[in-house]
Design a protein around this nucleic acid. Structure first.
Lengths: 138, 138
DNA sequence: TGTATTTCCTATTAAATCGATAGGAATTAT
DNA sequence: ATAATTCCTATCGATTTAATAGGAAATACA
């Protein structure tokens, strides 16, 4: 199940991508428009900023803005920051690999075999979608 | 993240599929061989039985056996029983659809758009893998 | 310079879920 | 009868999730 954190984060990124204008977008505005608890959204945008997707400006007329073009923001990268590993098992993860305790031979493991395929296909989707692809007008 | 329940359940199904012979396979044997806590495995096999994948026999020389050919057991169906919905969001689920509270227009939702693609691809993998495909000899 | 505004940061909480365990009832082979 | 095995319910501890609280730091502007 996708966490609310990820869901909210993607929605917020899309909102920011859609907004035209020079001034940064405020958390309160996004929260209200997208129906997201403001304090929760604050922490989400903070982690997106730390991951390099967003820049921020403090104080009056402050807010968040994209640091890259929407077409350069790959959803797989966003997902990894918000949701964590894309693979459903550590033993099939590219970026967060870990061996299973219980599994003596990975290549003979039925679950491994299946989850490799799921990962490949999911990754394919997430790598081929950028923020631009998602942030269509309402 | 894939739950241990699902992981254990798939491993157990594969184990049963690999075993040759007339007599049912006992939980204790599977648990020992696949390194799964026996009591936990009991409850998992019980739900697989209730879902129609397994049959059981009680008492001495009792145990579990497949009720269909491995080639007829579709992994998507197994996953739904053990893990729940395949979609990452209720609003993109075929079998467990639910509208999002916060989302006024599903078709304009960026997250929806992305998760539909993920679901389609995941489903494609899980529908095209049967127990036979996974339960290769060790 | 002072005040309101906004992001930034840490801590806490309530609820849900997960993985596992416990104990015993029901059924069956011998 | 007895031992073995599935069946069923309840419970527990740990972890994660979603959200809230409170205030520090920075900034615009009067």
């Amino acid at each position: 199940m996708l966490s609310k954190k990820t869901k909210y984060g993607i929605k917020a990124l899309c909102y920011i991508a859609r907004v035209k204008g020079d001034t940064p977008v405020q958390v309160g505005e996004i929260a209200k428009s997208e129906q997201i608890p403001q304090k929760f959204l604050e922490s989400i945008l903070l982690s997106l900023r730390k991951a390099g997707f967003l820049g921020s400006k403090k104080g009056k007329h402050g807010g968040y803005y994209l640091r890259k073009l929407p077409s350069e923001i790959i959803m797989a990268d966003v997902m990894r920051v918000l949701e964590g590993p894309i693979a459903m098992l550590p033993c099939v993860s590219l970026n967060f690999y870990e061996k299973c305790d219980d599994c003596p031979n990975e290549h003979a493991c039925s679950v491994h075999k299946l989850m490799i395929q799921v990962r490949d296909n999911t990754l394919n989707v997430l790598r081929n979608n950028t923020l631009e692809d998602l942030s269509c007008k309402k």
